[in-house]
Write a protein that binds this DNA or RNA. Sequence first.
RNA 1: GCCGCAGUGGCUCAGUGGUAGAGCACGUCAUUGGUAAUGACGGGGUCGGUGGUUCAAUUCCACCCUGCGGCACCA
Length: 587
Amino acid sequence: MNKEKSINIENKEALEIIRHDCAHVLAEAVQSLFPETQVTIGPTIENGFYYDFAREKPFTSDDLTFIEKKMHEIINKGENFTQEVWTRKDAIDYFSKKGELYKVELIKDIPEKEQITVYKQGNWLDLCRGPHGQSTKDIGEGFKLTKVAGAYWRGDSSKKMLTRIYGTAWQNKKELKEYLIQLEEAEKRDHRKLGKEMNLFHFQEEAPGAVFWHPKGWYLFQSLINYMRKRQEDADYVETNTPDLLDRSLWETSGHWEKFGENMFTTEPREERVFAIKPMNCPGAVEVYKKGLKSYKDLPIRMAEFGKVHRYEPSGALHGLMRVRAFTQDDAHIFCTEDQITSESKIVCDLILSIYKDFGFENVRIKYSDRPIKRVGTDDVWDKAEKALINAMEATGLAYTHNPGEGAFYGPKLEFVLRDAIGRDWQCGTLQVDLNLPKRLKATYIGEDGQKKTPVMLHRALFGSLERFSGILIEHYAGHLPFWLSPLQIIIATITSDSDNYASYLFGKLKDKRLRVEKDIRNEKIGYKIREHSTAKIPIIIVVGKKESENKTVSVRRLGNNQTETFKIDEILEILFKESLAPNSEK
RNA sequence: GCCGCAGUGGCUCAGUGGUAGAGCACGUCAUUGGUAAUGACGGGGUCGGUGGUUCAAUUCCACCCUGCGGCACCA
C-alpha cells in the first residue's frame, strides 16, 4: 500500500524538488490572480507541499480550480529558476516595499552569519533556501491542489490565522493518479463510514464526542475487554471499579483541579458541593489502595479498571472514535516500591508488545517524554522518576525516542505507537511513573523497617482508549474483523425452504459451541443472500441445500474467497470453535 | 477554540423563491431459484435549530448546533 518504498533515493530527491518548485509556482499563481495576497512560507510535506498566504478573505475550494489553471500556464512558460544572494538590507527593503510583512519577519529571524538567498522564476521571486529545479517546465503534470485550510502563523494559536493551500505532486500523471487511488482506498476503510455500514455505532448532536454503541459494535468492544481481562488475570492483576463522580476537593488534592481543570466536566453546584466527572481513574485507584494497611510484602499491587472517563476536548479535535470526549480506558495502577519500578515497567512493556502482536501489530515505536512545564512535584522527585523510567527502558533493551517536555503533569511517561496495515501511526499504550499522586493523596505502606513509606504508582493503559482502539482495528482490518472479534460470525443460508429444518439443526449445533450465528431462510435466491452477507462482511457463510442436507455436510464460503469447501458437520464445528477462541486464551 | 465547507426520507445523494425527487433499504404480493442484486406494487421526508427578509423559504440573510478538511490542542 505504501508507495514510498518503491521510490529510490534519487527519485526522492527529485520529488522534493518538484514539490518545492510547485509551492513557488503556486505562490506566483496566487499573487498574479490575487495581488493583494501576502506570501509567507511554503514547504514540502509528505506526498506534496503547501503554501500559507495572508489575505483578508480566505480562499475557498472553488478558487483552487483557477489557481491550478494558472499554475499550468506558469509551468508551460518554462521559466528558469535562478538563485541570487542578497544582502540583509536589500532583502528587507525589497520585501518591505512590496508589503510582504511576513517575509520581512522571516528575514529578520535568519541568523546573521547565514546567507540570504532568493529564487527567481521569470518576474516572480521568493525568499528561499532552495534547492530548485532547472525550469518550471520540469514540474510536469503530476500535481494537484487538494484542499484549503486555516493555519496559524508560525503554528501559534495566539497569532493570526493564515489561509493554507495544500497540493500533492509526483513525477508524472500516472504516479499522481496512483496516489489519488490510494487515498480513495484509505477512505473506504474509514471507521466512521464502516461503523455506519456495519451498524456498529453512531454519534448524534445531543452527545458530541460520545459513542452510541449498537449491539454489533458493543460485541466488538466487549470482546476486547474480555480479551484484556483474561490477559491481565494471567499477569496477576486485580480488577476494581471506582465512582465516576467525585467531590471537587479530591481533585484539588490530587492536583487535577489546578492542572487539568479546564478539561473537566463539573456538576452544577448543589448544596454547596461541586462534583467533577472523572477525567482519569488514578485518584479513585489510590482511594481503593488506601483502604486497609499495606505492607511492603503486599507490593506490587496491580490494580486494573475499565474506567470510563470524560474530558472536555476542543470541539475541533473530535474525530469519530479516534478522539472523543467520553471513553473507556483499560487502565491500571501498579503500586510498588522504588526498587520494583524497573522490573514492573519491563513486565508492562512485554505485555503491551505481546498484546499488540495478537492483533497483527508488529511494528511498535516507543516514545519517552519527560517533565512538562505545567506539573506538580519538586524537581528532585522528577529527577528520580525520570531516572527510574529510563533505567527500566534500558533494561528492556527496546529502542525509544525522546520527547522533551511532553510528560504527564504528575510524572514522565512512555508512549507506545503502533503502525497499522496502511502505514499510519497510532498512539495507544502508555506507561507513566508517578511519585507525586501517592504522596498528595497520602497513600502509604509499611516498610521493612516498620516505618510508613509512600509507594510509587505506575499508571498504564495498553489499548489506551477502547473506543479508539476499536476504531483503529476497524480501519486496520478494513472492516474484515478476524473471526474471534466478529460480532456475527456465521450465516447459514438456505437455497430453498426444503432445507429449513436442516438449517435449524445446524444453527443449534453452532450455537452450542457459543458461536455467533444467524440463519437466513428468507425466500430469496442464494446469490442475493451471498451478496448481502458478503457486503455485511460476515466471515463465514454456510450454504445448505438439498445436497448438503442429504449428505449431512455443509458448504462453506469464507469472506474474500469465492471458492467453497465442503465439510462434515463435526469437522466444521471443530474448526470454527478453534477459530473463535481469542489469541493467547488456551489456558 | 480558529479558518473554510456542509447538514434534504433508514442509507447514499439530486433539486427548487410558490410547501420535494432518485437509487438502495423497508412493506405487500408473486416467484422455491445452487454461491455477489427475481419481478410488480406500495408506505415513508415539512428539507439541522431559531429568528429575519418576502404575498410566499427547504431554497435568500443572521445567529446557534452538529459534522467534514486543516490549524491549534491531546494531561
